[in-house]
Simulated scan of single mutants.
Amino acid sequence: MASTNAENEPRRSICCIGTGGTIASEPTAGGLAPTRQDTFFRRIRSHPSLTSPAHFDSSSVSFSSPVHTVQVGKNVKYPKLITPELDDNGISVEYEILDLDRHLDSSEMTPSEWNIIAELVHQNWDNYDGFVILSGTDTLAYTAAILSFLFNKAGKPIIVTGAQIPLSRPRSDGWTNILDSLFVTGTLDFAGVGIVFNHQLLKGTRATKSSPNLFGAFTTPCVPPLINFNVKITYDTSAPLPKRSSNPLPPLLRLLTDPSVLSMHIYPGMTGSLLEAQIAAVPTCKAVIISAYGSGNLPINEHSGVLQSLKRMVEKEILVVVISQCGIPNVYPLYTQGRTLLSIGVLPGYDLMHEAAFAKLIWLVSRPELSFKERQELFETPIAGEMSK
């Protein structure tokens, strides 16, 4: 029988998937590292904002109390926890932490790990009302972006969060990031993939990591936050929040794990031979992101050889996308360079962030049923709110 809240309403159940990262790091002889041990769970179980002692069988539960885990394949599931009341209506949330068998520094995240996370969400979709992915911050925005495409229009919330300071250290921001994530997934009528960080809910396909130091580590330069969690909670009024629904879960897509999307930065002196050398070194390459100047400009004079190289890439049916190096990107073909690129089949990235461009391309090239032309057309079609045209 489902547990209930103060108003006798069913209490929502959330699955938190632990991948490691800063939030789960502990001091080691070599510095902070995302070690896999039950200390992380013990810290959460002992925190009064995340665990209500009223729901324990014993009032004597402490940090050192035993932890009874369940092995789920290679992963470990920790005991269910229940939050205190999270809003004025007396709503609380129950949640379970499912820890991956190997904790990662998020700089080690690859499409293989994304496949594991997506499969776990897929397997547990009917068992929970929402999901929280606990991640390191370096690739957190990439993870949110790829999950946005893999679970596009699914009817439940999937939140990705982490911390700038580990839970094991003083002044950790991880406590409030977890709390706000449980608030979003457990109390709000919200569906979709988002990032919760520093008292904001950000759209999963629009975010980028903008600071390794500030608690506000993530921004969405081209769109406002979906929600600001201040004394008064405020919402973006330009578009309604997607609501929970019974939309069917998209079929599970296995992402290619061989290197398939390359990223190249244009700089003064870049030549076509340099571009092609990188392509030649990766025979599994199916798409290339070119980070260009300003509104999508790059050298196209015959001496540089860049234009000829890009044309040969397209002829080999490699998706070539141009995005902007600017902090607030927007690629539009105002200048001769941009219009010339369009004429040879190079695709404009509009206001895509690099994270979303990478995620969208790997999502496209992992779909063998699509032709090259269909992939080109779908790239220029907004799929998960990732760009404006």
Rank of each mutant, 00 (worst) to 15 (best):
H55L: 04
K80Y: 07
R42T: 03
V67S: 04
T51F: 01
Q71H: 13
G73S: 04
P66L: 06
F63L: 07
R42S: 03
L50C: 04
T69F: 01
S46P: 09
S59W: 07
F63T: 11
D57F: 06
N75T: 08
K74S: 10
S52I: 00
S65K: 14
V70W: 01
V70K: 15
T69I: 08
S49T: 14
S46Q: 07
T51Y: 02
H55Y: 14
V72I: 11
S59K: 14
V67H: 02
D57K: 13
T69Q: 03
R45L: 02
I44G: 05
Y78Q: 12
S65A: 13
S64Y: 15
V76C: 12
L50N: 05
S58P: 04
S65P: 08
R43C: 04
S60H: 15
G73W: 00
V70M: 10
Y78E: 07
P79M: 08
A54L: 11
R45I: 00
S49R: 13
H68S: 15
Y78C: 06
S49W: 04
P53V: 03
A54Q: 15
K74M: 02
Q71A: 15
F41C: 04
P53C: 09
S52P: 06
P53Q: 07
S62K: 14
V67P: 01
S49P: 08
P48M: 03
R45Q: 03
T51L: 01
I44D: 00
T69W: 00
Y78I: 11
S52Y: 00
V76M: 08
K80S: 13
N75C: 05
F63A: 10
P48C: 09
R42K: 09
S62G: 15
T51A: 14
K80W: 10
P53G: 12
F56E: 04
S62W: 02
S59R: 14
N75K: 06
S62T: 15
P79L: 06
H55Q: 14
S59Y: 07
S52W: 00
F63I: 12
P79W: 01
H47R: 05
H47T: 03
R45P: 08
F40G: 04
K80L: 13
R42P: 06
S60M: 08
P79E: 05
K80I: 12
V76H: 11
V72T: 10
R43V: 02
V61P: 05
P79R: 13
Y78H: 12
S64M: 15
N75S: 08
L50Q: 08
R43H: 05
F56G: 07
S52T: 02
D57E: 13
T51N: 11
P79G: 11
N75R: 06
K74R: 13
S59M: 07
V61C: 05
H55P: 10
V76E: 05
S58F: 07
R43K: 09
F63S: 14
T51M: 02
V76D: 07
T51E: 00
K80T: 15
S58L: 05
F56S: 10
L50M: 00
V61N: 05
I44S: 03
A54R: 13
S59P: 12
Q71T: 13
S52H: 01
V67L: 01
